[in-house]
Design a protein around this nucleic acid. Structure first.
Length: 218
DNA sequence: TAGGCCATCTGGTCCT
DNA sequence: AGGACCAGATGGCCTA
C-alpha cells in the first residue's frame, strides 16, 4: 500500500517524520482516517509547510497553542444527503437556465453551429458573450469601430472563439462609465429595462443590420 | 478508442 | 444547524 504514497513515505523519511501508512475505506464509510479532501491530497503537512515558509522568508506566524484536532463532523444522514443533492441539482439547473438565456442573448447566427446544429457549450457561450459585450461596448464608444470587430472580421465560429479567449477583452474599462449593464444585453428583459442606453435611431439601425435583437430598441 | 462535455454525487467551507 | 457555494470524482454520451 505504501507504493501508492511514495511521496509521503519519502518525505517522511527525509524529514524524520513518523511514517504513516494510509488506511482506506470506501466512500460511504467515513472513518477518521478517510480524509480524502483536497487539503490532504494537495497541501503540505503543517510542519513541512512551516519549514518551506521559513526557507522562503515568509513571516513566521507566532505559534499558538495547537487546538485540539477538530472532530470530523459525522456524515450527513441519508435524508439530509438526499435533500442536499436535490438542492445541488436545482442550483445547477438554475445555472444552466442562465446559460440558456445567455445562449439566446448572443447573436443568433452564432448560437448554433450551422453545419451540425449543435448548441454552444458552456465555455463557448461564455467566451462569445464576452466578445459580444466587448464589441458592443466598443461600438457604443465609437460606432465606426464596429466595422472592424465582431460582426465583420470573423466569418466563422472558430475565428470568433480564437478571439474570445478572454485574455484581451477590455471589459472593465468598457463598463467604467456605467452606461451599460449586463441586463442591457439580455433578450428576456423588457424594453423598459433598456432605457439606460441612449440609442440614436441611426445607430440602432446600424446595429439592427447585424442583429435583429437591436431592432427592438428605439 | 481517446477526449470533450455534461450531470450528478459528495464532502468541505463559509455564512446566516 | 442548515443552506449556499464550490471543487473533485465519476460515469454516461457523443464525436472525430
Amino acid at each position: 500500500m505504501d507504493t501508492l504514497f511514495p511521496f509521503n513515505h519519502e518525505l517522511s523519511q527525509r524529514l524524520c517524520l513518523p511514517v504513516e501508512s494510509p488506511t482506506y475505506t470506501d466512500s460511504n464509510n467515513n472513518s477518521d482516517s478517510d480524509k480524502t479532501s483536497s487539503d490532504d491530497k494537495y497541501s503540505l503537512r503543517p510542519r513541512l509547510l512551516r519549514r518551506r515558509n521559513a526557507e522562503q522568508g515568509v513571516e513566521k506566524v507566532p505559534k499558538t497553542r495547537t487546538p485540539k484536532p477538530k472532530q470530523k463532523p459525522a456524515p450527513l444522514s441519508k435524508y439530509r444527503r438526499k435533500t442536499a443533492n436535490a438542492r445541488e441539482r436545482s442550483r445547477m439547473r438554475e445555472i444552466n437556465q442562465a446559460f440558456e438565456t445567455l445562449r439566446r442573448a448572443v447573436p443568433s447566427i452564432y448560437s448554433t453551429d450551422v453545419s451540425t446544429n449543435e448548441k454552444l457549450t458552456k465555455i463557448t457561450t461564455l467566451r462569445l458573450a464576452m466578445k459580444y459585450i466587448s464589441t458592443l461596448s466598443a461600438a457604443l464608444n465609437g460606432p465606426d469601430l464596429i466595422n472592424s470587430d465582431f460582426f465583420s472580421d470573423c466569418s466563422d465560429l472558430d475565428c470568433l472563439l480564437l478571439e474570445s479567449d478572454g485574455e484581451s477583452l477590455p471589459l472593465r474599462s468598457d463598463f467604467s462609465d456605467n452606461s451599460l449593464t449586463p441586463a442591457d444585453f439580455a433578450v428576456d428583459f423588457p424594453e423598459e429595462s433598456l432605457t439606460s442606453v441612449d440609442f440614436s435611431p441611426d445607430f440602432t439601425d446600424h446595429l439592427s443590420s447585424f442583429d435583429p435583437f437591436f431592432s427592438n430598441i428605439s
